[in-house]
């Protein structure tokens, strides 16, 4: 009677580990200097233990089986910890794929007299390890995506500060491109700022916006209109000559908004509408 593949591997666990460590040592890609040999041995032992422990007649066929949760969790955390230690995805993948070499070697030792069986078992093992490789790769990508997502969130927060420049006047410099996701953050922060400070004038300075096309203009108009709905006025400042040129060339109508060339003139306008005056004080002369 043929011994099922998982039984073979269970009984030959130590041989698998021994072969795997051998292959790892031969492969410079794996036996890189990140880990000491002891660490690598400990990690590999754990890996083989969990792998062999979770193999049975169902799981060997079906990688999505819930019985493999321990293994998939282990691979995910292994990938993450290796990524943190500075292993490249190639190194981690090679580490996993060398295990395949060891497993196949063990199978061929056991089934040398039965090529048919060996062929079938080899395909099964191959597929199984490939799945582990894919899972590890996916984990790696997901980890990266998390980092990118967090960074873009932080950037959106950082790049839209609301500054109270005077009692009743807010300013918000925008640096970088204004897309629709960003516009939402800008609007939210600006309107919340208006509520929090009870300001009636908000200045949106776009000196740091590289280009204004019809889409950006639309976002600006939306922001101005939303500000008006709240009962405040929004002034757009920092209209550079290039921006004025493109706006007119593209035929964008900004006439419903109050626009100013500089933050300074926007501030003057704001002072004016709040009936404030900034004057140089008369110093008392000594003589």
């Amino acid at each position: 009677m043929e011994t099922p593949i998982f039984e073979i591997l269970r009984s030959k666990k130590d041989r698998v580990l021994q072969l795997w460590l051998q292959v790892q040592q031969m492969d410079t890609e794996v036996s890189n200097n990140y880990n000491t040999a002891d660490e690598l041995r400990a990690q590999s032992t754990e890996f083989v233990d969990i792998l062999v422990g979770s193999l049975n007649e169902n799981t060997v066929q079906d990688f999505s089986s819930p019985e493999l949760e321990a293994l998939t969790d282990y691979i995910s955390s292994l990938t993450i910890s290796r990524a943190r230690q500075g292993f490249s995805p190639r190194e981690t993948a090679t580490y996993i794929f060398t295990l395949k070499d060891a497993l196949l070697k063990v199978l061929s030792e056991q089934n040398s007299d039965n090529p048919q069986q060996l062929y079938q078992d080899s395909i099964l093992v191959s597929k199984f390890i490939d799945n582990i490789g894919i899972l590890s790769f996916e984990t790696f990508i997901t980890g990266r995506e998390d980092v990118i997502f967090q960074q873009s969130e932080e950037m959106a927060e950082l790049s839209t500060p609301v500054i109270r420049v005077w009692n009743g006047i807010l300013a918000m410099p925008i640096i970088g491109t204004l897309d629709s996701a960003r516009t939402q953050v800008v609007m939210e922060n600006l309107l919340q700022g208006i509520v929090d400070t009870g300001s009636s004038i908000a200045i949106l300075d776009i000196s740091g916006v590289p280009a204004v096309d019809s889409l950006v203009a639309q976002h600006l108009i939306k922001t101005v209109n939303a500000t008006r709905l709240m009962g405040a006025e929004c002034i757009i400042s920092g209209i550079r000559p290039e921006i004025a040129q493109t706006v007119v060339h593209l035929g964008i109508d900004l006439s419903q908004m109050i626009t100013k060339a500089t933050l300074e003139s926007a501030l003057k306008f704001a002072f004016n509408s709040l009936q404030l005056e900034v004057r140089r004080t008369q110093r008392e002369k000594l003589n």
Partner: peptide
């Protein structure tokens, strides 16, 4: 008076 920011953004 007193429109909430989220309401203003939604209306626009």
């Amino acid at each position: 008076v007193g429109m909430q920011p989220a309401v203003a953004i939604t209306l626009i």
